[in-house]
Amino acid sequence: MPAEHVLVTGGLGFVGSAILHALLNAHPSFKTTVLDIKPTPLGYKLPSGVNYIQADLRSKSDALRAIRGTKPTVIIHTAGYSPTGSARYSQTERAQVFSINVKGTENILHAAREEGVKAFVYTSTCCVISDDLDHDFPNMKETLPTGRATTVYGQSKTIAEHLVLSVNYPELATCALRPSVIFGPGDTQLIPTLHACIEKGETPFVVGDGFNLTDFTYVDNVSHAHVLALENLLGPKSAAGEAFFITNGQPIPFRDFCLAVWTEFGHIPSYEIRIPKTLAWFAGSILDWVTWMTGKEVTLSAGSVKDAYGVRYASIEKARKVLGYSPIVGLQEGIGISCKDYYERLNGK
């Protein structure tokens, strides 16, 4: 493969930095540039040889300036915004989510076409399908229609994914990867939220039957898939214009993932209380009001209850066949590494 110049947007973030490292490992000869909205934090050192550019993709001119200035041949577009906590289930951050996820993608796509970029890999999400929270999604395949997501995040990513895939031309090959819930070292959402449940005494409660399978994906598998997708778009192009689910291929009950994480922190609930789905949803709805009135965050809400009892896992057959993807880090190993990392972060090491 001739030396390429890869631009990773959101390259300072959790997933973006993992992609950057996977890329440097797989293709040390490639030139790499990180684009991020934030300046590099104090004390943070990018790997040697990696360029950095600060740009706000919400601005069309900023995006164009960044691409014109760096002239990448490939873009991995990972920059995005996902509301957390109760905002995930409400409309409060709609404007912000859409401006970053939709407008940002539109701007960088426009710049990529203007500047003759060859390949474009988009970090989408399985939420484009599974954020239709009222339905179960066992063994999701890429043939399922999008456009039914009910969360702001799912809706914005759906539009962005459509934009990316619809500009797939011979000159600019595009594809979208849909990882499921991502965890790993540096994760600020999943493991910290679950860890906080121990303190709050929320661990004994099981919503539903406790057998709703969910996909969790270790971050290194996600970055590995991005490298494979990039190689494909520069080579055979069989992935061009396509979307792929990327998971660990090891769906387990949501509850079991929580238990495994808690066990890593030395906590095993001494008893269990099973709450029927409807009761939990009802309680969640009431707590939504409590949250609204007191302004204090509770883990349980009508939306998070649906997230906890829904069946959401995908088939990775398409990624296996087309990209040659196969998870490189297993779930158990991944949980071990991630919890150790979070433990060290908590203890300020």
Partner: peptide, 29 residues
């Protein structure tokens, strides 16, 4: 299955694999 068992997560994965396989031959979706 209990988290006290060192094989907890692997057993959970194995159970999930059976469930997913059944779903591939008899989709409930």
């Amino acid at each position: 299955n209990t988290p006290k068992d060192p094989n907890f997560i692997q057993i959970s994965i194995a159970c999930g694999k059976i469930e997913q396989f059944i779903e591939t031959i008899f989709p409930s979706q």
